[in-house]
Amino acid sequence: MVEIKRYSPVAFKVSPKRVEVRDNWTVVLEYDGEGQGANYLVDLSHITRFDVQSSNLDAIKPFGVTIPQGLCESNLQDGLLINRMNGIQASIFCLSGKKPEMPSESSYTETTEVGMCMAIFGKNVFSITEKLTSLDFMDPAKKTPFLYQGPMSHIPCQIITLSRDGEKCGIIFTASRGYGKDMTHAIMDAGAEFGVKPAGEDKFKSWLGSL
């Protein structure tokens, strides 16, 4: 029997302190020297993601969670993040880390392995993103969580703003898998003046739990 091994397109220049193998991914739970920093960057490329597409999207409730009706609105419930991309399409991120069973309907496509996914959180997140994109994350007309489909560091991304609340500020974004290495480099470089540090999944989960 052939053993599958899945590799994240994202790698940091620090050594993992604790890892876990989950669904053939090597998931880093904690990095050396994480400490109590101000801003963190977490690789979430292993979390399960789906696209759902249907001409009658409002009739679909992925894993019991409602798809938002408004364009570019998101819904975070029980660790499941659903983003309305357009009239017929939504993306689903299983942020809890558990892999749900693939729904049998043909409207679902698993997209986990085609992209990279990262989270940046901390009090200076929007100072960092300001160096990477012209998208306005502080637009008062938008209510968190919300989706932007636009360029960050010149790369087309889906960016979901989960919080704009002081220390809890944070975004999650995905882009094509091939950009993983260069996006990491660009974000670490832009975040250097704000002390951004790589962090493992545990740090992400405690931030997500605080929202």
């Binding site: 364009l71 012209s134 636009g150 360029p151």
Partner: peptide, 18 residues
């Protein structure tokens, strides 16, 4: 940014995105 364009899905954006 000289040109902005209003996308029916995403709203008004930088012309370089189009």
């Amino acid at each position: 940014m000289s040109l902005t364009i209003t996308c029916p899905i995403c709203g008004k954006r930088n012309g370089y995105e189009f």
